[in-house]
Write a protein that binds this DNA or RNA. Sequence first.
DNA 1: AGAATATTGCTATATAAGATAGCTATAAAT
DNA 2: ATTTATAGCTATCTTATATAGCAATATTCT
Lengths: 143, 143
Amino acid sequence: MADDVTDPLEIRPGYQLKRAAAAAMSDLNDRLSVLDLRQVDASVMLMIQAEPNVIASHIGRVLDIKSANMVPLLRRLEERGLIEKVPLDGKSHGLHLTAAGETIMIEANAILDRFETDLMERIPAEHREHLAPALRAIWHSDT
Amino acid sequence: MADDVTDPLEIRPGYQLKRAAAAAMSDLNDRLSVLDLRQVDASVMLMIQAEPNVIASHIGRVLDIKSANMVPLLRRLEERGLIEKVPLDGKSHGLHLTAAGETIMIEANAILDRFETDLMERIPAEHREHLAPALRAIWHSDT
DNA sequence: AGAATATTGCTATATAAGATAGCTATAAAT
DNA sequence: ATTTATAGCTATCTTATATAGCAATATTCT
């Protein structure tokens, strides 16, 4: 039996969204793996880079990472010498990229830029500009 | 510190895709939970409904479900009396919905339709029609 | 027909992401 | 000053999916 039978899920946008995200995220993970970084690592470091001295709980709030999961994530990055913590007061630490962290982020940003260029290039031109606004609407109106 | 600091990931379509998918899938899982079905269960049953007598390995190929994971999935559905297996030859089984399976799929299809209507309604009208083609392009050109 | 190969469905186990529950110390609010 | 909220943390659980491999059967090739 050839696999040309109509997939009843092909017409469902929810399924398209899931499969597109899975394909894209798998691709990105492969690309980031050469730096031994996961997406979540890169996104956290991106936030630290954008706002040095940011605290962990703020990153967690923005990126939806539970503090229980943030702790080992930051510890790994710190142990690799990519970030450092500077005490702000008795309980908070400002996060910063180290020199090594800045260096790896040059490559990480290049990978992310390339990934996104490739991602957008897959999309026919007439649909391309609509993707980000549509996705943002889905995400931000989620209750 | 108010959380109005610019999120450096807001501008990245890859991140938008991930967050939109996560929000939508979480929503859908909540809705399907009233039937005690997960998305993957519903999608498998949808394929069986669309093509009675389909075999498990075909579903796995189309939906990207490993046979090791298909086995317990089908067993649960069979134990709940929602599907049944009819031997086709010495090693394959044709899958069918039972009467109970047909009944639950009436509700499941209603939930899916409603979910997708709500999903699309969140998107501003001028972007709406572009979402599915854009997502399909991302998914299907994935190597 | 016989031999080699591929497919189907399966078991058992590993991995990885993320969620839950709860705790201590500190800071902020009343 | 007392209460409440926040930051960071530990330990553990759940869940989805991946890996490795197997026996029986079907298919393909010579």
